[in-house]
Design a protein around this nucleic acid. Structure first.
Lengths: 251, 251
DNA sequence: GACATTTGTTCATATATCGCACAAAATGAT
DNA sequence: ATCATTTTGTGCGATATATGAACAAATGTC
């Protein structure tokens, strides 16, 4: 790509949008400038543009994103048939398991939720489509990383901040690579409170009819309710059934 | 705002992102150009910028958005405490009602889903956070429009494409304005298969401690299971309870 | 209340982008 | 295969934007 085929004003604007996140619902120009490492004048112009277009509002001091910003992310969710196709299966899975079920894809070192069906609330984190979790310590992440060539999986791990969320979190790259091999062989991944104390989960890949892994689905359950060692016995048949149904309908 | 405070390259890029939607997961340069009414060269630069940043991929012919694009919309969901705060209440509401529960806010003439808890699948439409429905014929839309000053509600209706989704859909502006007044008085809205045959729903406003309506929550049920006339009796107490709980925790 | 710091805004100018026109390549019809 | 049509890529002048410094306003500190 040529140098002049890059619209830096656009790129800067997107960076500004991403500066809003997690705990930062309201940003001043100076704050956004620091977060994005862009000039204050540039950030100001981007934010005013967002306001002019209705993606943000300005109260004289703080800029806040409006729901219109969801149109951008939603373009993907609506554009890809994946979440549409998966959701009903997920609903059914969740109901039959009596537990939360989710679907996700890989984006860099994170898993991104694309659909979710909840029965009860066990996690402290609030997960909605678009939510992100570190792939290396999430059941769906393990499944998705296992589906990559070893060299790529290793590359992802190298780029990952391997910090332990709980005492159970596996953070040794070699141990994780071995885990990926095990997951690949057995066709599922079980996480025992590696992401959050009290939460176990089991995930399987979602494959299309050509055998390519296009997503992962999981079931999460309170550790107090189902021991990690019982997760497979308890939920794998249901997951396998959903997996099989999806294989037939995915392009 | 001054003319020079507007970054048109940014605005054009956002328009290109929005061109991806619904049935258009893959776009060529020419297609995107037609949809956005922007010059092909401009669209091409925007798309190449998106690709360079990892928000899209290009296979030589088609551009496709990647999950990374969700970071943009998600910045809002994660940035606003609203979905975070509402979700657990919605889960509880859904479980106690044994039906789907959702929360939404108004964006122009549409309601935008910000959270959802599903028990069963009754709608043909797949609703996820970010999904949009016409406000005038959705229960939450009626509630949110009722919360506006009459002149604004009327203005929204004027900008709305008032097409009937079912034989039950109310499309007469005056009838709708009268309905808004009724909703405002009784504090809830019931929809009897106006959006989709077989689906009834009831919604109440979510107010903060200053009495401002910041969102709406609803319960949807199959018409075969609960008659529209029974919706209030059946679900209003639960909705009121959730509404009351939320009033205490919202800023 | 005076001073120091931070923040928002404006401006001139160097730099980058836009849209047009044209060329090249791909597609489709006969 | 040929031609017409559509689509994509590129060079260039006109136009728009980014930059960094300067200033003004607000905020915090003593």
């Amino acid at each position: 790509m040529r140098e002049t085929d890059f619209v830096s004003g656009f790129a800067r604007g997107l960076k500004v949008i991403e500066a809003f996140g997690e705990t930062r619902q309201r940003l001043t120009i100076a704050e956004a400038s620091k977060l994005t490492e862009l000039d204050r004048a540039t950030v100001r112009r981007s934010l005013l543009t967002l306001s002019e277009l209705g993606y943000a509002v300005f109260d004289g001091k703080f800029f806040t994103l409006t729901p219109k910003i969801l149109r951008l992310g939603h373009a993907y969710l609506a554009a890809t048939p994946l979440p549409m196709v998966i959701q009903p299966h997920l609903d059914q899975l969740s109901e039959r398991a009596g537990q939360n079920a989710s679907a996700s894809v890989l984006d860099g070192t994170a898993v991104v939720y694309i659909a979710r069906a909840s029965q009860r609330r066990v996690m402290s984190i609030n997960l909605t489509p678009g939510s992100r979790l570190p792939a290396f310590c999430a059941s769906m992440g393990r499944v998705l990383l296992s589906a990559l060539p070893e060299s790529e999986a290793r590359a992802v791990l190298e780029r990952t901040d391997l910090k332990a969320n709980t005492p159970n979190t596996k953070t040794d790259p070699e141990e994780l690579m071995a885990e990926f091999r095990r997951v690949r062989e057995q066709g599922y991944a079980v996480i025992d409170q590696e992401l959050e104390i009290g939460l176990c989960s089991i995930a399987v890949p979602v494959e299309n009819d050509r055998g390519q892994t296009v997503a992962a689905i999981n079931i999460g359950a309170p550790a107090a309710y189902v021991a990690a060692s019982d997760m497979a016995e308890r939920f794998l048949p249901l997951l396998r059934e959903t997996q099989k149904a999806l294989r037939l309908v995915l392009p």
